[in-house]
Write a protein that binds this DNA or RNA. Structure first.
Length: 559
RNA sequence: UGGGGUGUAGCCAAGUGGUAAGGCACCGGAUUUUGAUUCCGGCAUUCCCAGGUUCGAAUCCUGGCACCCCAGCCA
């Protein structure tokens, strides 16, 4: 069987194809996914992971997982662990290619020494403030540091002393000697090393100087033999420095950087800084809150990893500003879940229905399919008795034209059970409907109509006597604004969607759901896809709605 | 009037001088014991704008316009 798996063409694939065709990489290509372990991975990282691991796979190359851990101030082992878990969850395997930029600290130091010896780097005693003010602006050139012309011997001695811990944090840096008047600000004698006494999660206290990204990244790529260093567009201007570094040392290989645009998703933020803020402000319960666009959040929400990989392939890779509608993601999730998720009944907002002509103490089990389109998933027995719950939304006392669920005098099908007709309505002291009375037609067992009569509505139900209680959490986007922006706590407050998590208590589930495992997908018919939350217990069952079903009625109702 | 980028439908996106793929969304219609799924059909006479080159331009040239990124001892 040949399935038409269309791998969409994008410019990076084309570039690699061309490179391979030109014979540039006889030993194969290599890529890397280089996260900084200072936060959890999010949907934007998924795009990069799929790209880097994906093209390596397609072209018979390899992909490294490299922690870009050059800033001990913000990095931690917690993040290192979560990142590995998330990459594996997405289905990618780095095999023996787990690396840390910190593995290369000694080699990086040696390269820096080489740069000093060739007169291409110098130790600068200016303070951070002074460096900033002498850097110039976007439209005016910077001015040379008074330390720019120190000779290599002196620089070398100073740099060694920096490493030996003889100077205070922030008192000196190593700078590349390039061009203070360059129109590209990244080339105005960028800092290569800073002094920072901070225990590193990997190297402990062996270093008190740490290399900067622009120095570390090209050399790490070169050390690993990375051929295609793929990064996001905001590093475009850094490419000149990336190349400069590689051209001014003798690197073990020559990697090239190519940039693509980062993903932004409607109604969400995809920035580690802002996500960190949501966590630290307690806006969400943690990095894995089901509303978070983090991989751990989406996992807890019930998104299957294939859906995320599929999403990444559908959105493509370009250099355009990419602002994707959430419907694309939701569609991928539904498409992944629909063929496999077993069906079950659950009622979110129960309305008691008493079937008056059904015997008081009788109960029976009715057969229901676990998947209407896939008999191989089998059947289950669902208990039925005189009192059941239906969805409040499935009854209207005074229904509009196109409503074809239950209403006074109307007949509907209870899925897999019987046809029932509403005979009367009972109100509470506030005038709200609190109970509905029906009669059932014993001839219609299983929901069949032997007389061929047509029933427009089919609704779900659960037996009052047998049902399980549960709390169900329904999610909406975290933000009101499709393109949320906030710089302060008040702005954050204003843009937050107050209804992003709706907790519905006292929901009723069919008894078979008592066995549902944490995280495994279930479709509650007519309501959506759900999964059991990790915090769920037998005493207090908690379900997350992963995504609702497509709801045409909701649109009809609007009109 | 510093530098680097990007403009194809509501949102993504293919297209690489030969007459606008595909997905999502949307709108019909069929089937349906989930208003789900599935199926079938519709959805850019035009590619940011204006000129030019060419038998022929989304693709090449010129000039505009709009938007994004860069002034960390962050990545």
């Amino acid at each position: 069987m040949t399935e038409d798996v269309v791998t969409p063409s994008h410019f990076i694939r084309q570039l690699i194809s061309k490179d391979i065709a030109a014979g540039r990489y006889p030993d194969g290509i290599a890529t890397r996914f280089p996260p900084e372990p200072n936060g959890y991975l999010h949907i934007g990282h998924a795009k990069s992971i799929c790209l880097n691991f994906g093209v390596a796979q397609e072209f018979g190359g390899v992909c490294f997982l490299r922690f870009d851990d050059t800033n001990p101030d913000r990095e931690s082992p917690e993040f290192v662990e979560s990142i590995q878990q998330d990459v594996r969850w997405l289905g990618f395997d780095w095999e023996d290619r787990l690396r840390h930029a910190s593995d290369y600290f000694q080699q990086l130091f040696d390269f820096a020494v080489g740069l000093i010896e060739s007169g291409n780097a110098y130790v600068c005693d200016l303070s951070a403030d002074e460096i900033r003010t002498t850097r110039g602006t976007l439209t005016s050139p910077g001015s040379n540091s008074p330390f720019r012309d120190r000779n290599p011997e002196e620089n070398l001695e100073l740099f060694n002393k920096m490493r030996a811990g003889e100077y205070d944090d922030g008192s000196r840096v190593l700078r590349a000697r390039i061009d203070m008047a360059s129109p590209n600000i990244h080339l105005r004698d960028p800092t290569l090393y800073r002094i920072r006494r901070q225990t590193h999660h990997n190297t402990g206290d062996s270093w008190c100087i740490y290399p900067m990204y622009d120095f570390t990244h090209p050399l790490s790529d070169a050390i690993e033999g990375v051929t295609h260093s793929l990064c996001t567009l905001e590093f475009e201007d850094n490419r000149a420095l990336y190349d400069w570094v590689l051209e001014h040392v003798s690197p073990p290989s020559r990697p090239y950087q190519t940039e693509f645009s980062r993903l932004s998703l409607e109604y969400t933020v995809v920035s580690k800084r802002l996500l960190t803020l949501l966590v630290s402000r307690g806006v969400v319960s943690g990095w894995d809150d089901p509303r978070m666009p983090t991989l751990s959040g989406m996992r807890r929400r019930g998104f299957p990893p294939e859906a995320i990989v599929d999403f990444c392939s559908r959105i493509g890779v370009t250099r355009n500003q990419q602002h994707v509608e959430i419907s694309v993601l939701e569609n991928c999730v539904r498409e992944a879940l629909n063929p496999t998720a077993p069906r079950a009944f659950g009622v979110l907002r129960p309305l008691r229905v008493v079937i008056e002509n059904y015997p008081e103490n009788e109960e029976e089990f009715l057969e229901a399919q676990n998947h209407p389109n896939d008999p191989s998933l089998g059947v289950r027995q669902v208990p039925f008795c005189r009192e059941i719950f239906i969805e409040q939304d499935d009854f209207m006392e005074d229904p509009p034209r196109k409503f074809f669920r239950l209403a006074p005098g109307r007949e509907v099908r209870l899925r897999y059970a019987y046809l029932v007709t509403c005979t009367s309505v009972i109100h509470d002291e506030n005038g709200n409907v609190c109970e509905v009375r029906c009669t059932y037609d014993p001839q219609t067992k299983g929901g069949n109509t032997p007389d061929g009569r047509k029933v427009k509505g089919t609704i779900h139900w659960v037996s009052a006597k047998h049902s399980l209680n549960a709390e169900v959490r329904l999610y909406q986007p975290l933000f009101k604004d499709p393109n949320p922006k906030f710089d302060s706590d008040t702005e954050l407050e204003q843009t937050l969607n107050p209804d992003s998590c709706e907790t519905v208590d006292n929901c009723k589930l069919e008894p078979s759901l008592g066995d549902a495992g944490i995280g495994s997908p279930i479709q509650l018919e007519r309501l959506g896809y759900f999964c059991v939350d990790p915090s769920s217990t037998n005493q207090k069952r908690i379900l997350n709605r992963t995504v609702s079903l497509r709801d045409t009625w909701a649109r009809v109702k609007e009109k």
